[in-house]
């Protein structure tokens, strides 16, 4: 575990850079993380995915798989990979401030 300062606030991150406590996350932090990951602007589509992931996480205890995202978030699998080129499951979950989704698909 480590700490980092995001949007002026100190947050706890695990070894892979995922939030230890999703409640520490704010939208300003998402913007900072996205920029650091090479996403210059978070578009409406990005926000749809990030918000959907957080909603799923707080309802079900784990973030959605890429397949579920593609089926239910309103953003297709193809677009998910364009929006989050470093792997939607991993990259989007980290920027959304939730743990890495469990599940293999």
């Amino acid at each position: 575990m480590s700490t980092a300062t995001m949007a002026g606030v100190e947050v706890r991150l695990n070894d892979e850079g995922f939030f230890e406590d999703p409640n520490q996350w704010t939208e300003a932090m998402a913007v900072e993380m996205a920029t650091a990951d090479g996403i210059d602007t978070l578009t409406d589509q990005h926000w749809t995915v990030l918000k959907f992931m957080r909603k799923e996480f707080f309802e079900k205890g784990t973030g959605p798989t890429v397949r579920l995202l593609g089926k239910t978030s309103g953003v297709s699998v193809k677009d998910l990979y364009l929006l989050f080129p470093k792997g939607p499951a991993k990259m989007a979950a980290r920027i959304a401030g939730i743990p890495k989704p469990k599940g293999c698909i």
Binding site: V66, Y81, P85, G87, P88, A89, K90, M91, C104, I105
Partner: peptide, 12 residues
């Protein structure tokens, strides 16, 4: 198939 899909999801 699962390995290929998982690799892409991890950004490989």
């Amino acid at each position: 198939l699962i390995m290929a899909n998982g690799a892409r999801a991890e950004g490989m």
